[in-house]
Design a protein around this nucleic acid. Structure first.
Length: 382
RNA sequence: GUGGCCGUAGCUCAGCUGGUGGUAGCGCCAGGUUGUGAUCCUGGAGGUCGGGGGUUCAAGUCCCCUCGGCCACCCCA
């Protein structure tokens, strides 16, 4: 949850997550610490510290903290689930990692998620691309928005992320990364693409995809929700960060992983309606017009027999109790009044379908109910 | 962090240039139906107008502060 500030500052000085959004403070031991804004750096720090055997696969889930202005889908405390694999350079691993995240959303039931992939190339490719981009954007001069001119100074890649109208034509005319890929980076990416194709995972190559953390190189990817009106539409993302372990004091180590935003995934689930309506919480609602004592006895025996039951209180009118029974979602009402008590029976009334209510002996109530509860509900035409 | 919008009944919201809080919809409760829900009809309850200060004879309405939410930028999960 907390790390020495230095673990995060190594993520890059052009990274807003580090420069603007860190929840950092000095503790009682005079250590400058920060609540983690993400977890990849912590995993790499742990790897550098403990040197596990590679390939090393790790997963995590838990809260992260960023000091931003909260908005829907963007919270100061948010949860991520993620995985990291360290020590493997093989592009087939990239495919496996990307596929795992894709499968996560697919199995949740989300159908409108889009997968974007790109390659930032080797560090040298990336450096040449940044130079070319800087030239391009500087040539645009004042046509570029003031904000972007400032971003350009720190990291020209990030200018591609601008959503300001004014910048769009200039961004559209910018050189693309693929022109700068080394043969090796291009081959790596080609294997990733063909691997995704081979296992049937649909994706879009997005040359303007740049991730917000500076440690990425080569393969990067993002899962984008299809239902979001707002700009917080990234449900998850990740990429390769070969070299990060080394930056944190470990041996040169390849690495790749992703993080998925739990809150945003849940928002997407709401939008797509993937969660079925909850089942009724009760099977039987006991209606007691004798004062409530019968309901106490009946709910007790029913619950003991594993029949989920509920009742009304305050000795309300039968009509009110029936309303409560209806609202509870119970399939049956078990009605007991003075007539039933005298006759030693309980009236079972189906709350759905067209079935008639019947009186059953009190002793056989549980078996009668259990039998009826096992039968499929007959929906009555509305 | 910058800019904009919004907090009024349990929920969704009206409320004009300050002048007694809305017959609003949904929900809830009761009655119509003294043993029967989901429909219908009638009635009813429920509010520190987010909180605090100020201007005014008078503030839900105007001003300031504050808390919370939403949107865009930014950023990203």
């Amino acid at each position: 949850m907390m790390e020495d500030l230095g673990v995060f500052t190594r993520l890059g000085d052009a990274t807003d997550v580090v420069t603007k959004e860190m929840y950092d403070f000095v503790d009682k031991g005079d250590r400058h610490v920060a609540l983690r804004p993400e977890q990849t750096a912590s995993v790499c720090r742990a790897f550098a510290q403990h040197r596990p055997v590679t390939p090393w696969k790790a997963w995590y889930s838990g809260p992260n903290f960023r000091y931003e202005k909260p908005q829907r889908g963007r919270y100061r405390q948010f949860d991520q689930v993620g995985i990291e694999v360290l020590g493997v350079d093989d592009p087939y691993l990239d495919v496996e990692v990307i596929a795992l995240g894709w499968e996560f959303f697919r199995r949740l039931g989300l159908r409108q998620v889009e997968l974007l992939v790109n390659s930032l190339g080797e560090p040298a490719d990336r450096a040449r691309y940044m130079t070319a981009l800087r030239d391009h954007f500087e040539a645009a001069g004042d046509d570029l928005s003031e904000q972007s001119i400032m971003t350009l100074d720190k990291n020209p890649l990030r200018v591609l992320d601008s959503k300001r109208e004014q910048d769009q034509p200039i961004i559209a005319a910018a050189p693309t990364i693929d022109q700068f890929w080394s043969d090796e980076a291009a081959a790596h990416f080609e294997t990733v693409r063909s691997g995704l194709d081979a296992i049937g995972i649909p994706f879009t190559i997005e040359m303007k995809l740049v991730r917000g953390l500076d440690y990425y190189r080569r393969t990067i990817f993002e899962y984008v929700g299809g239902t979001f009106d707002s700009a917080q539409n990234a449900l998850g993302g990740g990429g390769r960060y070969d070299g990060l372990v080394e930056d944190l004091g470990g041996p040169p180590t390849a690495g790749i992983g992703f993080a998925l935003g739990v809150e945003r995934a849940l928002l997407a689930c709401d939008d797509e309606g993937v969660f079925a309506a909850p089942d009724a919480a009760v099977d039987v609602f006991v209606v007691d017009t004798t004062g409530g004592g019968e309901a106490l006895a009946l709910t007790t025996t029913l619950r003991a027999a594993g029949v989920r039951s509920d009742r009304a209180f305050d000795n309300r009118s039968m009509k009110a109790q029936m309303k409560a029974a209806n609202r509870s979602g119970a399939a049956f009402a078990a009605i007991v009044g003075t007539d039933e008590v005298d006759a030693g029976v309980v009236t079972i009334r189906p709350m759905r379908g067209d079935g008639a209510q019947v009186a059953v002996a009190r002793d056989s109530l549980i078996s009668e109910l259990q039998q009826r509860l096992q039968q499929p509900l007959q929906e009555s035409p509305q």
